[in-house]
């Protein structure tokens, strides 16, 4: 069961207006993913959400981000948030260091919460986005829970597959399409 209803009008209180968003731009790497991009500055978060040596259940999630012409985006930054009540894990990775411009995360699969399908929250940043995009990653081998999931069932059926990561030998693969026929479902959360 989900906790909240969602369509209430904005509540504007004493704080004033929200600070507007601006693009992360092309030069975030040395500030936000400095060790991944080999800058001499300690980074707060990377793609090892768990240490694969310690976790025998570790999985690797890979994927690419595509623009409206189907070209792989080499300067996106992906953040992953996992909270299933048992573990709270955060990952961040730019698509600029892998030879194929993939994002790669080493983590564990979340567990089901309140009978809903397990998922990861994904936040997508890049040059050319004035405001970030939220999506979710669900797992192909959870067909039964996926079929009953409250959020997946809000998504038009023909678009649901854009949210489901395919099983691979050591984890899952999840491509993100910003536009086009297979445009990934992005959420207003």
């Amino acid at each position: 069961m989900l906790e909240n209803t969602s369509n209430e009008s904005p509540h504007r209180g004493l704080g004033g207006y929200q600070t507007p968003s601006q693009t992360v731009g092309p030069y975030f790497a040395y500030g936000l993913s400095s060790e991944q991009y080999l800058y001499d500055f300690k980074q707060l978060a990377g793609n090892q959400m768990v240490n694969p040596i310690d976790e025998k259940e570790a999985i690797t999630i890979t994927g690419k981000v595509f623009d409206g012409e189907g070209v792989v985006i080499p300067d996106a930054m992906i953040e992953v948030w996992h909270n299933d009540g048992e573990k709270q894990l955060f990952g961040r990775f730019g698509t600029g260091t892998d030879a194929q411009n993939r994002f790669i995360f080493h983590t564990v699969k979340p567990t089901s919460v309140n009978g809903q399908a397990p998922y990861l929250s994904i936040i997508v940043f890049m040059r050319g986005q004035l405001i970030h995009s939220y999506t979710r990653l669900y797992f192909a081998d959870e067909a039964e829970l996926n079929s009953k999931d409250e959020v997946l069932n809000v998504v038009p059926e023909q678009r649901r597959s854009t949210l489901i990561a395919a099983k691979t030998a050591n984890g899952y693969h999840f491509d993100i399409w910003m536009q086009g026929e297979n445009e990934t479902v992005f959420f207003d959360i």
């Binding site: 906790e3 209803t5 919460v113 809903q116 929250s121 992005f186 959420f187």
Partner: peptide, 9 residues
């Protein structure tokens, strides 16, 4: 964008 309820995540 698809509007969804806010849950634990």
């Amino acid at each position: 964008l698809v509007v969804i309820k806010q849950s634990l995540n």
